[in-house]
Design a protein around this nucleic acid. Structure first.
Lengths: 183, 183
DNA sequence: AATTTTGTTAAATTAGACTTGACAAGACGA
DNA sequence: TCGTCTTGTCAAGTCTAATTTAACAAAATT
C-alpha cells in the first residue's frame, strides 16, 4: 500500500499546497501526513477518504485501482470483435482490446429493426452511458420510458432495472459505455 | 463508512459464501468480518483490499465511490451545453448533466479544420476513450502518432502525454469519454 | 545572519483493528 | 424430540498500528 503515499504527494504538489496546510485541513498532524506520503504509515479508511476528498480524488485512484494499460491502444473499424449471439437482432462491437485494467467498457450496439433486449430487465452495478448514433431507440428505466433519437444521450445507474428496444424503421446504432468493464 | 459493510455483505451473499468461509480465506476471524459487515468495526486498508480482491470487487466500489445518480438522465442533442473556449477551433459538447457521482465523463469534441489541442501535451490521471464519428484526427501519445479515421477508436492511459489535431479536410467529430469526470 | 517554513524522524500515546470465546437462532439428520 | 452442526452476532480483552508530540536539518524568506 505504499502507492497511496506517492499518489497523495503527487496530487498535493500538483495543487501547490503544503504538507502542513493539507494536514491542518484534514485535522491530522503534519508529521502523520508525511509518514503517509513516505509510506511509513498507512491511514485509516476514514482518514484516507478525507484525504481523497480534499484532493478531489477518489480512494480508488489513490490506491492505484484506476490504473491503466500501455498497449492495446487502437481498434480499427474493420478490426472490431463482434459479439453475435447476445440477442435476437442485436450485435455488439467491442471498441477496445481485452485489458484487465480498464475502468470503462466502450461498446457499439447495432440493433436490427424491432430488435430489443428481450423481456427481462437488466440490473447490475456500475453506470452506463449511451449515445444514439443512428436511428432511434427506447430505453426503459424502472418504469420510465425514454425515447432517444440520433444525437441524444443518457447516463444512468445500472442498478435500476433497464431494457431497450429499437423503435426505428431500420437499424439503430448506439455507442454504449459501461462501467466497470465486463469484457 | 458503514456502507462498506453492507456492500461486502451483499457481495458475499450474492456469491453464496458463508461469513466463516470468507473470513478463513482472508485470514481474519469470522467475528471480525461480522463486525465489519454490521458496521461495528472498520477494516484496515490492506484488509479491505484483501476483501475487495476476494470478492472480485474494488475498494472503490466497496466504499460506494462507484455510486450513481438518479436524475439528470437524458441530454438531448439540442440541449447540450457547449464549452467554446477550450482552444482554437475546438468545441466540446457535454453529453451529461453535472453530477458529482459520475464515474466517467462523455464528451463530444468538434474540431474545425486544422484545429488542434495546441502545442502543449496533456498529462493527467485516469483513462480516455475516443471514437471518431466524422472526419479523421491524429493522436499523439508520447511520441507515437496514431491516425484515426471515422470508426476507429483508441483507449489509453491519460498519464501518457497526449495531444491531438484534426487532419481532415473539414470538421472532425469524436466521442470522448474521460475518467474520472472533471465537469 | 536571523527567522520562518519546508519535510522528515524517533519516540510516546492511544484509538481501534482484530481475536477469543461464548451466545441464540435456525437447519439437519437420527 | 433431542442433539449436533452451522449460521451470524456480541462483549470483553489484546495488541497492532494509527496518530501525536516534539525535535531536527535543509531550504526559503526577510
Amino acid at each position: 500500500m505504499k502507492i497511496v503515499g506517492v499518489n497523495i504527494k503527487r496530487l498535493r504538489e500538483g495543487k501547490n499546497i503544503t504538507l502542513r496546510e493539507l494536514a491542518r485541513k484534514l485535522n491530522i498532524s503534519a508529521s502523520f501526513l508525511s509518514q503517509i506520503e513516505t509510506g511509513k504509515a498507512s491511514p485509516s479508511l476514514v482518514t484516507l477518504k478525507n484525504i481523497a476528498d480534499s484532493l478531489q480524488a477518489t480512494v480508488g485512484s489513490l490506491i492505484g485501482e484506476d490504473q491503466p494499460q500501455d498497449d492495446n491502444i487502437v481498434v480499427r473499424e474493420n478490426e472490431r470483435k463482434v459479439l453475435e449471439h447476445v440477442g435476437e437482432g442485436v450485435k455488439i462491437n467491442l471498441l477496445t482490446s481485452p485489458n484487465p485494467n480498464k475502468q470503462m467498457e466502450p461498446l457499439l450496439f447495432k440493433l436490427d429493426e424491432k430488435a430489443s433486449s428481450g423481456s427481462s430487465m437488466y440490473k447490475h452495478y456500475g453506470q452506463e452511458f449511451i449515445l444514439v448514433l443512428k436511428g432511434a431507440m427506447e430505453m426503459t428505466l424502472n418504469d420510465t420510458k425514454y425515447h432517444l433519437k440520433k444525437g441524444d444521450s443518457i447516463y444512468f445507474n445500472s442498478s435500476v432495472s433497464h431494457s431497450f428496444n429499437n423503435i426505428h424503421k431500420g437499424a439503430t446504432e448506439a455507442l454504449w459505455v459501461v462501467t466497470p468493464p465486463t469484457f
